[in-house]
Amino acid sequence: MEIALACLIGLFFTVAIYLLLSRSLIRMLLGIAIIGNGVNLLIFTVGRVTREVPPIVPDGEYAPLEPIANPLPQALILTAIVIGFSLFAFLLVLTYRAYQELDADNTDTMRVAEPEDSPRPPLSY
């Protein structure tokens, strides 16, 4: 199971890095989304994949009756999903605004902050 998951994570990362290396912002966004899922899967896998029952204590008991799965990786993944989702939403809006304002989806032509033809620094002093 771990080997299959590891291969899947590798696939996720491959796709994500390929997309992130693209010049187009919308592809980079997709890459961000996919790398986030890859990381979540990674945390899930390194938290040990077991066949135990969910970590829920039955009503009226104080401790689980049988061995349970480790709930911590799931909590970490949940947090990471929430944060990744909100940042993705923000980046999506930002990219959309940048596309409208700068009329550029291509990072090569986004040169407002760092002008391509920026003048040379003064040579005096």
Partner: peptide
């Protein structure tokens, strides 16, 4: 929301 800010924010953000 000036253009230069959007441009900088995209690079900073990603």
């Amino acid at each position: 929301g000036r253009k230069i800010q959007l441009d900088g924010a995209v690079k900073y953000g990603f």
